[in-house]
Amino acid sequence: MGKIQSSIKKLWDAFTNEHPEYRDNNIPPSFYFCDNEKDANTCAHLVLKRIKQATATSLWWFETHKESLPEINDLNIVTDWDGNAVAVIKTTQIDLVPFNQVTSEFSKIEGEGDGSLAY
């Protein structure tokens, strides 16, 4: 087992020890945020600090990559750019919102930059 898979399994095992209701689940998919190392690592850190509690992926991305939209109660493992596991997250809400209707409240819980809509 490689270092990355090892970190994911270790985090999942720790999570399921604290949350035994998930013990029979398969290890959920893992991913990092963004398309570059600096932002991916920053976002992973913000998730760990519970500052980043939302994300905004474009519908275009899901369609282009032929990926299913997330569903309520989905679990995922967030990694840093190098694939090291940092957190288990759970989808609690999904809103399809046109870009020009994203709110400042959402910007705050997305947690990136200065938390403003302008950012």
Rank of each mutant, 00 (worst) to 15 (best):
N100Y: 15
N41H: 07
K49N: 11
D13T: 15
D80Y: 00
I4C: 10
S104V: 11
K3G: 06
P70K: 04
E21C: 09
F33M: 04
S107I: 08
S68G: 01
C34V: 00
F106C: 10
A118E: 12
N36T: 03
L48H: 05
L11V: 00
S116K: 07
T92D: 14
E37I: 02
G83K: 08
K66W: 02
Q53E: 08
W60F: 15
Y22D: 09
T79W: 00
C34Y: 03
T55I: 08
F106K: 07
I8R: 01
L117S: 05
V97Q: 14
N73L: 08
W81I: 07
A40N: 06
N84Y: 14
G115W: 00
P70Y: 03
L117N: 01
N76W: 03
S107Q: 07
C34W: 04
W12A: 08
H19D: 05
V97W: 13
P20C: 11
T57F: 02
A56R: 12
M1A: 09
C43W: 02
A40P: 00
I51R: 11
N84S: 12
N73Q: 10
S58A: 15
I8C: 03
T64C: 03
K49G: 04
S107H: 08
T64V: 02
P28Y: 02
V88M: 06
D39L: 10
D95P: 10
E105G: 14
N41C: 04
D80A: 01
W12M: 10
N26G: 09
D74W: 03
D114I: 02
N36Q: 06
V47T: 05
I51G: 02
K66N: 09
N73D: 14
N17F: 15
Y119K: 13
V88Q: 06
I77M: 00
N76P: 00
N100G: 14
K10S: 15
D24Y: 12
L69R: 07
D82M: 13
A44N: 09
M1F: 08
R23V: 15
C34I: 00
L48E: 12
F106W: 13
T57K: 09
A87H: 00
N73S: 13
N100A: 14
G115I: 01
Y32D: 02
H65P: 04
Q101Y: 12
Q53W: 01
A85N: 00
L59I: 13
T91L: 06
P70H: 05
K9G: 07
S6E: 14
I89T: 12
C34F: 04
A54S: 10
G115V: 01
I27W: 08
A85C: 05
D74Y: 03
Q93A: 15
L96Q: 13
E21D: 10
I27R: 08
A40L: 06
K90Q: 08
C43A: 10
P29H: 06
G111M: 06
A44R: 09
K9T: 11
Q5S: 09
K108E: 10
C43E: 06
H45E: 15
E21Y: 03
I27T: 14
P20E: 10
F106R: 11
G115S: 01
N73V: 07
A118S: 09
K38D: 11
L59T: 11
E37S: 06
E37H: 03
T55F: 01
G111V: 01
K108W: 06
H19N: 12
K38Y: 13
G113R: 10
F31H: 02
S68R: 04
V86Q: 08
D82L: 13
L11N: 00
D80I: 02
V78H: 01
I8S: 07
A85H: 04
I94E: 07
